[in-house]
Nucleic acid binder design. Structure first.
Lengths: 219, 219, 219, 219
DNA sequence: TATGAATGAGCCTTCATTCAT
DNA sequence: TATGAATGAAGGCTCATTCAT
């Protein structure tokens, strides 16, 4: 896992810079696991350092403090989602198919990235204390909403969607249904003896979510 | 371990027993705030003690450890929800009105008890490590599901609801929409510049949630 | 185990006094176990109270403090030994038999009262801080030494014991051999894989101790 | 976990490593005093830290817990005895002189190392809970017993010792007489008004111990 | 850029003891 | 004589962070 990428860069500092970037990334990955697992206050710098290829000192060298490291982790997590839902090309699709595609992408992303879900939960426990420090979030979200608005209005004009649905309201609904499924997995699964992790259970829920939203939007 | 008895007794011990129960309750209330505010690892026993009418020592006298106190808080929070959604009398209402009533009750409870929402979030961050220790959760949930099943089947036989909706799936949907609204308030409100706390905003979302679920269930 | 003794006493307070004495004794017995088990600093007042028929408050009512309770325990333990080795009637026996009888009594007492051994160990760990407060110890010891002196001098004059053995030195030797056997049981048994508790092992050691001391004293 | 290596290395780390080893040793020395003085439960980490050149935090850095520190102290104490009684060269001496040499060495060691005696007492109060964790004790003891067996059998074949004396029994006897002399110093000295610390008193006891054991072993 | 050693502040917990009744 | 509730002080341990090299 060491020194494989980026070796083809051109400037003089290449090797060292690459090493440094690698170290940074390695720390970030381990920290993501730890913060996502235990939350900001539950995470331990020692624990992160131990599972890192480098040392505790390096964490401070690169990130300055536990909080800054947490912020870097949060930022990286949000950056990664961005790249996902920006990739959906909606304009080639019919409104119905586009909506379904958006739901599916969102649903799958949450399932495949529980660490993102947990980081967001934690950030809400912290009453959003750090999210304001992360650049680009609003821009990305604007784009998401714009997409939804386009899909909705296209659907309305084609007579397949009903009028009056607010795109933010729609996004909140999709998010809620996809998020809760992962975020509340433990208490819900226990309280209702309900499997929430198997492919079968997830497939069923996926269908429900699509069904719910389509029923709502349908003209 | 519960000291709820004796409240009607007449002998000298009564007063003291009441004092003790008061102390216990006072600790529990403060602890609920603290754990709901900072989570299990973020909460500080010193902090709780300070805001209590008693002392740090008393916390250990009554609850034994930080974790046990946390469990007591969690249990109390779950006990309180129970009393709420068991109180909805469904049998006197038409299926449509009953469903709407359930949604409204659930929606309002989450709004009015963000501390419950936060405790549940935290318990999920802990991967449900303590929920299994709390008695009666499954029983209460069974009753909730039974109620929903009754409403659904009554609605189906009356021709107002469609067939095939699983009551657990329905409950998960209602929960998700009501929970997310509070749980993700901070990140969502920031990310989308969306007011999520004003009466107006909540009223709007309330309508959406009812609309979403009704669209889904409607025959 | 309650209220069986002393019911025949004559003064007015009989019943209460008896109860009190019983409570005191019960505390003392439990405390003996606890102090002997864990030492002064290792013992816990809570632990003692719990295993008592009465309460923690009573311990303070009767004994005033942990240290005083410890002293009471120590005193009682020393009082009990006293009654034992004062009971050996030496004057009727030949010097050799008397000596052997003393050794056997001492040996057996240590085996049968490891709690006494442990209390003495603990008191030595405390550098004898409390033994001075216990009355009557020196008197009792004087008597023990006097007995030994008598046996020795009688043995010398009968030609069975050699001259020049100091009775205190002799007592120290007997004590050492009987005490160590119990006091160092755990480290010795482990270090040398030597059973030190079975009847057989104790019988063997008993013989050795007699043999050692007789060899030393023999003319 | 041991940092004894590197002492001969030449690079920059040498000095630091030595400092670390010094810190560790310093803690160990102070801890030996404290545990030997007060026992495991009576000892205070704060007290140790205060008398150390470093801090409480360092104690945990190097030893992890109070119990582990105690174990390290116990181990070191046992390691040190080992080096002593392994040093007696028995093969050049006549059996009688060898035996006397062993007794003297043992006697003197106990006098000069009351902290060792006290640690062993304490470990017995703990019912040998930790001695099993210390490596090498049995090996060392085997060697001690082997030496004694050699001396005994050589003495028997030369006609100076009598047959039938078990080397473990002999060792226990020597130990008991040397150990008690120090372990029970406080209670004995008080109870019998007997000086047990002056050179004169120790010389006298030393002679007695030699006399006792020689009488027993003599053919 | 990198590392082992060190630290102060604070955290959870426990203990002997006392108070109100 | 008896009891449950309460307490201050301290004890063991951990944490994020920094220093010397």
């Amino acid at each position: 896992m060491k020194k494989e990428a980026q070796t083809a860069t051109t400037n003089a500092n290449t090797v060292r810079a690459t090493d440094a970037e690698e170290t940074r990334l390695n720390i970030l990955e381990v920290a993501t696991e730890e913060f996502s697992d235990k939350g900001l206050s539950g995470a331990r710098i020692d624990e992160i350092a131990e599972r890192t290829n480098s040392s505790k000192r390096m964490i401070y060298y690169y990130f300055g403090s536990k909080e800054s490291l947490y912020r870097a982790v949060l930022e990286r997590a949000y950056t990664r989602v961005r790249s996902v839902d920006t990739n959906i090309n909606i304009y080639d699709l019919s409104p119905a198919v586009a909506l379904r595609s958006i739901i599916t992408t969102t649903f799958d992303y949450h399932i495949q990235h529980p660490e993102f879900v947990r980081l967001v939960m934690n950030e809400n426990i912290l009453r959003g204390a750090h999210i304001g420090d992360i650049p680009g979030i609003k821009e990305r979200n604007r784009k998401v909403i714009d997409n939804l608005r386009d899909v909705l209005s296209k659907g309305v004009s084609e007579g397949v969607f009903r009028e009056g649905i607010d795109p933010i309201e729609l996004h909140m609904t999709i998010s809620a249904l996809c998020f809760y499924n992962v975020s509340n997995r433990y208490t819900f699964a226990y309280g209702f003896d309900r499997d929430m992790s198997s492919t079968k259970a997830l497939g069923r829920r996926h269908n429900s979510v699509i069904d719910i939203i389509e029923s709502w939007c349908r003209a």
